[in-house]
Amino acid sequence: MATPARKRFLWMSRRAPHGSVQAQEGLDALLMAVAFEQPVSVVFLDDGVYQLKRDQDPARIGRKNFCAGFPSLGIYDVHDIYAERESLALRGLREEDLLMPVRVVDSAALGALMEAHDVVMSF
């Protein structure tokens, strides 16, 4: 039997973590994809960068701290994790405000990154 073709996935997360369920659904779907050993890169932009803010305590509003799951991505050999520089700057976020190290790239580099992937999933 032929090996199924492996596509390169780019996960693009653009929503704030707790205002809707979209961000959490994105992580759930992402973990599903990595469980199937698909090569995945992840990028946070727009309000999505707020998912990376450290010290979140959503128990205060009765929600789960799902963003704690992002640092587990390294265990699945997902190491290409990016955040858009412009999105961080507009929100006054610095790299030391983030819960894990990510590669900070500008918008132009992000466009090139999208071109380099077969499938872009937007959450």
């Binding site: 707790h18 803010k53 509003i61 929600r63 006054g92």
Partner: peptide, 28 residues
Amino acid sequence: GTGVAGRLEAAAREMRVCVLEEDLAARG
């Protein structure tokens, strides 16, 4: 320090602007 801070600061001179602590904490 955000891109909208200037607008908020101007508004806060004319009216009372408050943020809910629990929602701040939830977001780190």
